[in-house]
């Protein structure tokens, strides 16, 4: 029995219980339970192969669970690891295409700092700019749940820090529930309300890093790294 209900369920941005997903006999997700409250910023850490991408794909509606129940709001948006912009459409069109509401596209482009590049071809953007365009495309849909699939993984360190600030800023302004999938422990601790660790298809740890801004992340970092199987915190 499986279902992916598309109704905003009370005060939660995502409600997952008993989620199972198998690929040729291998259980990638094994009875996973997860709740993301409305407006909550949740980071999901996991080693490669832990099933974090599969979970995200199920939440995005790109994959169908074998068992369990999934309920998400009617508007779910995704920012992928690669920006996935249509190279043959302008930045503005990339943000606006498929949009069914009359949200002001140029205002959102301004929020991510791309007002001046609205008419540019995507191939002329820098990596950071392309990722901001991808964020704008997700935000303009006014999602109840925003899924971020390692969106900063391919960026250089300085650009990544700038993107962290931008995402926090946008989140505080629009308040979607966010599920950020990442393998960067520091990123997860700095950004999220809750830091979850996924291992062997289940959530095995659930931390709340405390009030922002977070200056000292060392202690929690060591704990999470050990949960991820990295000895000594020397990542």
């Amino acid at each position: 029995m499986s279902a992916r209900a598309s109704a905003a369920t009370g005060s939660s941005a995502a409600q997952v219980s008993g989620l199972v997903r198998e690929f040729s006999g291998r259980r990638v997700l094994d009875g996973l339970d997860l709740t993301v409250d409305a407006g909550e910023f949740v980071a999901l850490l996991g080693r490669s192969g832990s099933g974090k991408s599969t979970l995200l794909r199920v939440l995005a509606g790109l994959d169908v669970p074998d068992a369990g129940s999934v309920s998400v709001p009617s508007s779910v948006a995704v920012a992928f690891q690669e920006p996935r912009l249509l190279p043959w459409r302008s930045v503005r069109d990339n943000v606006a295409l498929g949009l069914r509401t009359d949200t002001d596209v140029d205002r959102v482009l301004g929020e991510v700092g791309l007002a001046e590049r609205a008419d540019a071809w995507p191939l002329t953007l820098s990596g950071g700019e392309a990722q901001r365009a991808s964020l704008a495309r997700a935000l303009v849909r006014e999602p109840g749940l925003l899924l971020l699939d390692e969106p900063f993984g391919a960026l250089d360190a300085l650009t990544r820090i700038a993107m962290h600030d931008l995402v926090l800023d946008l989140w505080e302004r629009h308040r979607p529930g966010i599920l950020l999938v990442t393998h960067d422990v520091d990123e997860a601790i700095v950004l999220a309300d809750r830091v979850l660790v996924l291992d062997e298809g289940r959530i095995v740890a659930d931390h709340a890093p405390g009030p922002r801004p977070r200056t000292d992340v060392a202690a929690l970092r060591a704990t999470v790294l050990s949960e991820l199987g990295v000895v000594d915190g020397a990542a």
Partner: peptide, 27 residues
Amino acid sequence: PKLLEMAQVSGFDRREVLRHVVIPGAL
């Protein structure tokens, strides 16, 4: 296929997928 997935999660209908993704991609 990554662009097709993007179109799907961005709410493109069949005509929009053809017009904005498939045809320009095959051009």
